[in-house]
C-alpha cells in the first residue's frame, strides 16, 4: 500500500463515547448516515460540519472510553474518518473500530507533535506516520485482526461467508 495523505484532527486523553456520540441520540437517530451529524458534538462542534472523507483522528491515551456503543465509531466513519491514531484505546472501542473497518493505530506521541488541520502521511506497510516534522513508528495489527480490516470490517466478512454457505 502506498503512502497516503490525511488531514488531522487532534484531541487529548480520555475522550469518551458520550462526547463522541451522545447517549441521548442512541435511540433517536437510527440511520448510520445521520450519526455523522452528531459526531464529537459535545467535544468539538466544528468537527461534524468540517470533516471530510479520508480525515484521521489523532489522540492521546484511552480514546473511546465509556459505553460499548458502536455509533461512536460509525459516526466518525460516516463523517469520513479513515483511521484513528491514539496512544491507547479503550478495549471495546478498539474492537468496534476493527469490526467497522476503521483502522486503529496505537502510537505514542503523535498527538503532541501534530496539529489540527495539518496534513500527515501514513505508511501502513512500513508502520510509519509522518507528522509535525517527525517520523513515528507503529506495529501493524496482528494477522487475525488485519484479516477483518482487509475485508472492510466484520459485517462484510460475514456477508461473504453467508453467501458461500447460506443457512
Amino acid at each position: 500500500m502506498p503512502q497516503t495523505q490525511h488531514r488531522a484532527w487532534v484531541y487529548g486523553d480520555n475522550v469518551n463515547t458520550d462526547v463522541i456520540f451522545p447517549g441521548k441520540y442512541t435511540y433517536k437517530v437510527r440511520d448510520p448516515k445521520d450519526f455523522a451529524a452528531h459526531a464529537l458534538e459535545d467535544l468539538d462542534p466544528s468537527f461534524a460540519t468540517n470533516a471530510r472523507q479520508g480525515d484521521i483522528i489523532i489522540a492521546g491515551r484511552n480514546w473511546g472510553c465509556g459505553s460499548s456503543r458502536e455509533q461512536a465509531v460509525t459516526a466518525l466513519k460516516y463523517a469520513g474518518v479513515a483511521a484513528i491514531i491514539a496512544e491507547s484505546f479503550n478495549g471495546l472501542y478498539f474492537r468496534n473500530c476493527v469490526n467497522q473497518g476503521v483502522l486503529p493505530i496505537i502510537c505514542d506521541g503523535v498527538d503532541l507533535a501534530a496539529q489540527t488541520g495539518e496534513t500527515i502521511t501514513l505508511d501502513i506497510e512500513h508502520g510509519e506516520i509522518h507528522a509535525g516534522g517527525q517520523i513515528f513508528t507503529f506495529t501493524p495489527p496482528p494477522p487475525g485482526v488485519q484479516a477483518i480490516l482487509n475485508e472492510g470490517g466484520l459485517l462484510p466478512m460475514l456477508q461473504k461467508r453467508f453467501k458461500r454457505e447460506p443457512v
Binding site: S68, E70, N96, Q100, G144, L154, L155, F162
Partner: peptide
Amino acid sequence: MGVGRTEMAALWATGELW
C-alpha cells in the same frame, strides 16, 4: 464482557466471536 452491535449480530448468526 460488553460487545458492540455488529459483534452481537455476528454472535446471533455464528454463535462465536474472536
